[in-house]
């Protein structure tokens, strides 16, 4: 009896497995095309990067990356749906297929690129971790922070850099770890902690959300490299290429002086580089599985990298962040894209 039972169980199991064959990962690009929009993971509210206004309309650099990808793929930057995620939730959301691209001021690290099964597609913003304190404390440097209580957002590289920095400098600290960036900013404001630490761009963004931004100051030290960029999951190289080249297209167009206003004019340009990039000559779009006018659509509907930067975090925004490291390589910055050729 027992024996026959065991045999039966094994056969049933085997049959089940054979019938289903090997499990499919499911190509992301096919799924995106089929549903007709990109599901984009963004932050839970960070001015300049991804922030929903009172009408629920998202804007920011991270949002524009997704819009650009939609413009390239569908010819319509509006075909994006957004999923606001906390830092802790973001990787699981991408791994599990809940979102197609994670564009949520995420630092590119080796663990995330390998063990987490992600692929970073490039760097949208070169950032570094800093500290923000209340002016009343009279602290001028991060080196004076021994014994301080520090507010952080859970599940970020900042959480790890913070402990490295304090240990390296032989200082003690008390961490208070919140899930949401808003909560950690509020906690700085109410005095639960002395210091708020995060990427500097985030600190500036959080500061303008505080009731009295002028009472708070960002300390000069930058304690880490934080290259922020969009990521996709492993298993679909075509999709990876599209998101990657969307970003490169934005940087390349800025470099060639193509922007949302003059793109139609530039279509008539004699410059072979411009012709190739805009799809007047050659089949660069088709190679990527995109319409040939993909770059035109990106620039027309979203803008080149410089436009996106200035509009969201630069001089055209309340944040007024300088280009700095994020200027083009030809202007002393780090933004550099491989050529479309």
């Amino acid at each position: 009896m027992k024996k026959s039972f065991a045999i039966l169980a094994t056969t049933a199991t085997l049959a089940c497995v054979l019938a289903n064959g090997t499990a499919q990962a499911g190509a992301t690009l096919d799924a995106v095309k089929k549903k007709g929009f990109i599901q984009c993971g963004v932050s839970d509210g960070l001015p300049g990067f991804s922030y929903a206004d009172d009408k629920g309309k998202f804007s920011g650099i991270d949002v524009d990356v997704c819009r650009a990808a939609a413009a390239a793929l569908f010819g319509d930057a509006g075909k994006v749906k957004y999923t606001p995620l906390t830092a802790k939730e973001r990787f699981t959301a991408l791994q599990s297929g809940e979102i197609d691209v994670l564009s949520r001021n995420t630092t590119w690290t080796s663990t995330r690129d390998s063990a987490l099964g992600l692929n970073f597609t490039g760097i949208t913003y070169y950032d570094g971790q800093g500290f923000m304190v209340n002016k009343k404390l009279g602290v001028k440097s991060a080196k004076e922070l021994d014994g301080a209580t520090v507010c952080i957002q859970a599940g970020t590289t900042t959480e790890l850099n913070l402990s490295d920095y304090f240990r390296a400098n032989n200082m003690k600290y008390t961490p208070v770890t919140y899930d949401k960036s808003d909560e950690s900013a509020k906690s700085l404001e109410t005095g639960r902690c002395d210091v708020l630490t995060s990427d500097q761009s985030q600190l500036y963004a959080q500061r303008i959300k505080l009731a009295t931004p002028d009472d708070f100051v960002v300390l000069p030290e930058v304690i880490s490299k934080e290259p922020l960029g969009p990521a996709v999951r492993h298993g679909d190289d075509e999709w990876f290429d599209i998101v990657k080249w969307t970003l490169f297209a934005m940087v390349n167009t800025e470099e060639m002086g193509i922007d949302s206003k003059n793109v139609d004019e530039k279509l008539k340009s004699d410059n072979p580089d411009v012709k190739r990039l805009l799809g007047v000559e050659g089949d660069k779009g088709k190679d990527l599985g995109l319409p040939n006018d993909w770059v035109v659509q990106i620039v027309k509907q979203v803008g080149n990298y410089g436009e996106v930067f200035e509009r969201n975090v630069g001089q055209g925004s309340p944040l007024k962040i300088e280009r700095g490291l994020n200027a083009l390589w030809s202007q002393g910055g780090l933004q550099y894209a491989p050529p479309v050729r």
Partner: peptide, 24 residues
């Protein structure tokens, strides 16, 4: 058998997917 079969299928499917995406 059905329960064991489904359980095994889920386990196997998960493992294959994790491997394919290179997740540790």
């Amino acid at each position: 058998c059905v329960v064991v079969g489904i359980g095994y299928y889920l386990f196997h499917n998960t493992q294959t997917n994790l491997q394919q995406r290179g997740i540790a």
